[in-house]
Design a binder for these strands. Structure first.
Lengths: 300, 300
DNA sequence: TTAATGTCTTTTATCGTGAAAAAACAGTTT
DNA sequence: AAACTGTTTTTTCACGATAAAAGACATTAA
């Protein structure tokens, strides 16, 4: 096997959803933009839709014949990128315990275990190394540094530095900047979520990420913006892993966000600083309490 | 060809220098530690040294027979890592002009041009991406963001944030910390270099890096320490590229470093902050003046 | 009985290859 | 002639294979 066609399968699944809404599909280039893939992939998708009797396709006319059924979709797991598969698998092992800091990481073994080629694993590890959880020994193996208390503290130290600066930059943005409209929209979403928190508390993490990314973007600094990838990754897996008091935690966070938003809108730097600090402090606390205590870093 | 034996060649060259000093070589494991390679490589080296009549090798006895000649050494260029070769080649193209921001980067073309496989180029680009000069379009090509004024400003913003914090942490270190001894040694090296600046000004950049890394290490934060890789990379190529007033610049920098060191030793946070700020300001200025003005970022 | 050497096994680094996907080009339709 | 469709070329992505290098095990010397 040389390359999986997950791009096609994922785009196909998303394409099926378009069939519910219209009686005929737009042009190929338009579909390409819509689904974020090339025309080549669009044509493969259309070919299959024709084959399975979903549409009648003749040059420009792409008439919808029937509504897609559940079994028209490709299985979810076939739409994932290889790197997503590897990342998930790797993080599961990392968080599932037994992964002591100092332990060495074996490319070949990982590849075999996940059922992928070594190249993909290597590339993943290189990409992943910027998160600071693993480290490469010169022309030798990788070493696990581990999701330790020290890691969490170092991560949050930078996060706090960056976010305080970004928040200040945000508050200083001119009134006609489009970010204020974005902030208003996010505020509405927060209010709505706050009201329905009992049912929708698990939707918070996605909103959280969008909110913080908006703020970080105000820094206009690629290193700050990119660093949020590290935070997002950690929080993503952390949320999946530690479900204790999830509802309460998220309820508190929503409230803090709303206060933070109000502070930003006041454009009072003192208030912004205080609201930001308060929120980051509780975020740090949440993260720290979720770290297994036993794990202490080995001597390298 | 599957893998070059540059590790062996480089270690061999370094091994030759040991022959000048002693009449017989130590044990294989000891040599391994000394040259930073495995015993397998050490044995390959010893085998060749025996073959070329440099040593007589019988089990534990490794007697030096003659002093190595210039042509005993492998050519410098054969001792480089593939990734070093690729990086150099890539940076040359980047700085040599004609590399407009927004331009797309072609893996295959790069690989052919440098004469290496695509895998190595891919891995290089992934590793290199953390420097913020290039960016990947989702399942498509890489895009050059370019060594622009914006890049330099964003880089220095983070650098200043991190270094001020590290310097403060450094000054707060207890008197019995080993870093003070390291600092003393560096101070001596600075004084010596200052006296011989006319001849040795080009040795400054190496000293500069060691000095700043020592300070950053005091932060005990892997993200801060790792970020210095970005700065070091940029300065490395920047120094190679822009030789204008190199002597004067370095002379000023040495003086600033000495003031900075004095401030650290005083452990007076106000003085440290001032000395650090002063040095970083002139470093930023130097970097900014070296950026070609014409290059403006394209619309992405 | 410790620490070396000799030998064998495992892992990493790199390439060429082939399918998926993108992109470029050429020909049609409105 | 602008925007589409049909076709061809190029590029990315992922694999297995292979030599270099690391590492583990067995044996021998001090």
């Amino acid at each position: 096997m040389s390359k999986s066609n997950n791009v096609y399968k994922d785009a196909y699944n998303r394409g099926l959803r378009l069939l519910d809404e219209t009686k005929s599909l737009p042009s190929e280039p338009e579909l390409g933009v819509l689904l974020g893939v090339s025309r080549t992939t669009i044509r493969t998708i259309l070919a299959r839709m024709e084959e399975t009797g979903l549409i009648a396709w003749n040059k420009r006319s792409k008439t919808v014949l029937r509504v897609p059924q559940p079994d028209d979709f490709f299985p979810e797991e076939e739409t994932d990128t290889l790197s997503q598969i590897i990342e998930r698998s790797f993080m599961r092992r990392l968080l599932a315990g037994g992964a002591e800091p100092g332990m060495q990481i074996n490319e070949l073994e990982l590849a075999r275990e996940i059922g992928v080629g070594t190249t993909s694993v290597r590339e993943f590890l290189i990409r992943f190394s910027r998160f600071g959880l693993i480290e490469k020994r010169r022309n030798s193996h990788w070493v696990l540094k581990g999701f330790t208390r020290a890691f969490a503290l170092e991560l949050t130290e930078i996060r706090e530095m960056f976010e305080l600066r970004s928040a200040a930059a945000f508050a200083a943005l001119p009134q006609d900047s489009p970010v204020w409209a974005d902030l208003d929209l996010l505020e509405d979403e927060h209010r709505l979520l706050a009201r329905q928190i009992a049912m929708r508390f698990n939707e918070f993490s996605e909103l959280d990420e969008r909110f913080h990314r908006l703020i970080h973007r105000a820094s206009h600094n690629r290193f700050i913006v990119d660093f949020y990838d590290v935070i997002a990754m950690i929080f993503h897996y952390h949320y999946q892993w530690n479900k204790a008091q999830e509802r309460e935690r998220n309820e508190v966070a929503v409230t803090e966000h709303l206060a933070y938003i109000a502070a930003l809108k006041s454009r009072d730097l003192g208030k912004v600083d205080a609201a930001c600090r308060k929120h980051l402090k509780s975020a740090r606390h949440t993260l720290l309490t979720s770290i297994p205590e036993g794990q202490q870093p080995q001597q390298a």
